[in-house]
Write a protein that binds this DNA or RNA. Structure first.
Length: 398
DNA sequence: TCTGGGGTCCTAGGACCC
DNA sequence: TCTGGGGTCCTAGGACCC
C-alpha cells in the first residue's frame, strides 16, 4: 500500500507536561487547614540529624528554603517554619487520584514520578477543545477534586513541554506554539536546561558556554568532542527543542534498592553488620512483594568523609532466601569495607531485576536452599496479610 | 550539624570468546 | 615471534532527576 505524501497531512503532536506544585507540602496544607499560608517544610523535624528538605511550600521558599537543602540550614533560614517528616502513603494516594484524572484526558499518560506526568493530547481537540482550553479544564478538575494546583506545559516536543511547565509555577500554564520551540529554548537562561546539572553547567562555563545561545552556536561535532557522544548529542538537541527527544521509553534495566544514612557514623563491625542485615531484609522483602528476582547484588558504602564506594557481584542463579542473601552481602562488605573509616551510609540493591516468570537456569545442586526459600516466602506472605505480625531476626530486636 | 532516598543512564576498563 | 579486532558481559564510579 502506498500513501502519497502530498495527501497525508503531517500530524502535529501535542504533549502536556503536568507538574504538581510543591506536592508534598501542598498535600499537608490541604489536609491541615492550619498550615495554609504558612511555610511548610517536608523532610524532617527539628532535631533530625542528616536530613534534607524534600519539599518546601511556596511560603517557605520565600525564605530561601528549597529541595535537597540540609534540614539544619532550612531551620536557620526559616526558624518558625512547620517541619514535617512526611506521609508517603498519603502522597501516593493523592498522586494516584490525580493520575486517574489525567487518564480521562489522554489514553497515553506517561507517569514520570509521583508528582509529574506527560499526557499525549494529540488529536484530542474534538473532545476537549484547543490545547490551552483543555489544560484549563484539566487544572480546574484537579483543583476541584483534590484542592491542589498543577502547572502545565504544552508543546509538540516533550522536552520543551517539560521545561515550559516549570516556568510559571505555581498554578502555571505555558504553551509553546508549534514551530517556536527553538526560539523558546534560546530565550531561556542556562539554568533552565533540564538534564544539565551542576557539574555539566560548570563544564559548560569553563568552556565559555555560559548561555543556551552560546551552546546553540556550536556544531554537533564540537559538542560531541567536548562532552562525548551521548551528552554532546543531548546538548545539541536540547537547545533546539528537538522533537525526537522523547521520554517514557521502556527502560532497559530495573533495580530495587534501599539505603540508610545513620545519624552518627558506625564504627564497630557488629553495628555495621546489624544495619546491613536490616537493610538487606528490607530490599529482599520488596523483591518478594514485587514478584521479581535478580542474580546481581550491589552494596554501597558511604564513609564519614562522604566518599562513596560500591561493589557488586553477579551470581549464577537468583538470590531468594534471606540467609543466603545476607551472607553474600556480608562477603561483599568484607571485600570492600575500610575499617579505619566511619560508615555514614549503607545501601543494598538488586540490579537487573526481572519478572519471576522468565525462565532461569536451574542450579545443579540444591543445599536445602529451596526449603529455606519456601519457608521465607511463607513468612513474607504472612507479613503481607497481617502487617501487625513482624517476624524479624532476633538480632534486629533492640 | 554540611550534604536523604529511590531510581536511570553513561563511561571506561577488564575479562573472555571467536 | 610480543600482538588484532569485534562483540558481549561485568564492574565501579559519576551525573542527574524527583
Amino acid at each position: 500500500m502506498k500513501a502519497s505524501p502530498s495527501v497525508r497531512k503531517k500530524i502535529t503532536r501535542v504533549f502536556f507536561h503536568v507538574d504538581l506544585d510543591a506536592f508534598f507540602a501542598s498535600v499537608e496544607q490541604h489536609d491541615n487547614p492550619d498550615y495554609r499560608g504558612k511555610p511548610v517544610i517536608v523532610g524532617g523535624i527539628k532535631g533530625d540529624r542528616r536530613s534534607v528538605v524534600s519539599t518546601a511550600s511556596y511560603e517557605a521558599r520565600k525564605y530561601g528554603v528549597h529541595s535537597a537543602m540540609p534540614l539544619f540550614k532550612a531551620i536557620e533560614l526559616c526558624p518558625n517554619g512547620i517541619f514535617i517528616r512526611g506521609r508517603h502513603e498519603r502522597y501516593e494516594e493523592v498522586s494516584s487520584k490525580i493520575m486517574n484524572i489525567f487518564s480521562n484526558y489522554s489514553p497515553e499518560v506517561i507517569q514520570m514520578s509521583i508528582d509529574e506526568a506527560f499526557l499525549d493530547m494529540t488529536g484530542s481537540e474534538s473532545l476537549f477543545g484547543k490545547p490551552h482550553e483543555a489544560a484549563v479544564k484539566l487544572k480546574k478538575e484537579v483543583y476541584e477534586k483534590t484542592g491542589l494546583t498543577v502547572s502545565v506545559g504544552i508543546s509538540s516536543s516533550m522536552y520543551v513541554a517539560k521545561i515550559a511547565s516549570g516556568l510559571k509555577k505555581p498554578d502555571g500554564l505555558t504553551e509553546v506554539p508549534d514551530g517556536k520551540e527553538e526560539e523558546f529554548m534560546l530565550s531561556l537562561p542556562l539554568e533552565k536546561l533540564w538534564g544539565a546539572g551542576e557539574k555539566t553547567a560548570e563544564r559548560l562555563r569553563k568552556t565559555g558556554l555560559t548561555t543556551i545561545k552560546a551552546i546553540h552556536s556550536k556544531s554537533k561535532e564540537l559538542l560531541i568532542s567536548i562532552f562525548g557522544q551521548s551528552q554532546g548529542t543531548f546538548l545539541y538537541n536540547a537547545v533546539r527543542g528537538n522533537k525526537e527527544m522523547e521520554f517514557g521509553k521502556e527502560s532497559k534495566t530495573h533495580s530495587i534498592s534501599a539505603e540508610r544514612t545513620f545519624p552518627y557514623d558506625l564504627t564497630d563491625r557488629y553495628s555495621i553488620e546489624s544495619a546491613l542485615m536490616e537493610t538487606a531484609h528490607h530490599v529482599l522483602y520488596r523483591m518478594h512483594a514485587e514478584k521479581v528476582r535478580s542474580c546481581t547484588i550491589a552494596l554501597k558504602i558511604r564513609y564519614g568523609d562522604f566518599t562513596t564506594v560500591r561493589i557488586q557481584e553477579t551470581y549464577s542463579s537468583p538470590v531468594t532466601n534471606a540467609h543466603d542473601f545476607f551472607e553474600k552481602c556480608r562477603l561483599l562488605l568484607s571485600k570492600k569495607l575500610d575499617a579505619s573509616k566511619g560508615v555514614r551510609l549503607l545501601g543494598v540493591a538488586f540490579e537487573n531485576v526481572e519478572k519471576k516468570s522468565t525462565p532461569v537456569q536451574q542450579e545443579l545442586f540444591d543445599f536445602g536452599e529451596k526449603k529455606r526459600a519456601k519457608l521465607e516466602e511463607a513468612i513474607y506472605n504472612l507479613e503481607d496479610k497481617n502487617p501487625a505480625i513482624k517476624i524479624t531476626k532476633a538480632r534486629l530486636l533492640k
